[in-house]
């Protein structure tokens, strides 16, 4: 009998800090066991930039702050059977979504960029320019959680989630018996 094919996993970091990807590595030596069950397709961990095949599980870190994030996220949705948001930024917008708090302004995006690059007290920007290279993706009007842009199947909360909860979720999903989180793993206070 042919060996069962390995499950394919893809990951991406959108508007996040890569902390959740570091947390994936916190699985530590259990990675060896996991790698017996899976192969990693498109991911910063493998440096594969495009999907080579359809994947079983997609893991998304970070929310959407620019058009490229939206593009990548939609690409993941189209190419993954199960899509998981991992970490606070992907689930709620997280730290980048602080800019959504600029509400009482006619041009919140302009105000945000000006403070970040020109008027902020601790800014040293000798050119007084806001970066605008044609290669830079356009920013969205605000930062969106992933679930606003595509349907998300599972969310692993945390900033970042622990290696344990990530491992258990993946192991559970792969074994077809994921029944939610152990309370201690998602209790943060």
């Amino acid at each position: 009998m042919a060996e069962l094919r390995k499950a394919r996993i893809a990951t991406a970091s959108l508007a996040g800090c890569f902390g959740c990807h570091m947390a994936i590595l916190d699985i530590d030596e259990r990675l060896m066991e996991l790698m017996k069950l899976v192969e990693v397709d498109r991911s910063p961990l493998t440096d594969i930039k495009r999907f080579t095949k359809r994947c079983d599980i997609g893991i998304i870190e970070g929310g959407c702050c620019n058009e490229e994030n939206v593009h990548v996220l939609r690409d993941f949705r189209r190419n993954c059977d199960v899509l998981i948001s991992i970490g606070q930024c992907a689930i709620m917008g997280g730290l980048p979504a602080m800019r959504n708090a600029i509400m009482h302004s006619d041009a919140p995006l302009r105000e945000c960029l000006e403070e970040a690059y020109i008027t902020g007290r601790y800014i040293r920007n000798t050119t007084h320019d806001i970066p605008n290279d044609p290669a830079l993706p356009l920013l969205l009007d605000e930062v969106y959680p992933c679930s606003d842009v595509v349907e998300i199947d599972y969310q692993i909360p945390g900033c970042a989630p622990t290696g344990d909860v990530i491992y258990e979720t993946l192991a559970g999903l792969l074994a077809g018996k994921f029944h939610g989180f152990d309370r201690m793993h998602i209790k943060f206070d």
Binding site: I130, P134, P137, L140
Partner: peptide, 13 residues
Amino acid sequence: AIDGARHLAKRRS
């Protein structure tokens, strides 16, 4: 969602 940035950056997507 990107319309504001189009005007600010004076370029298209």
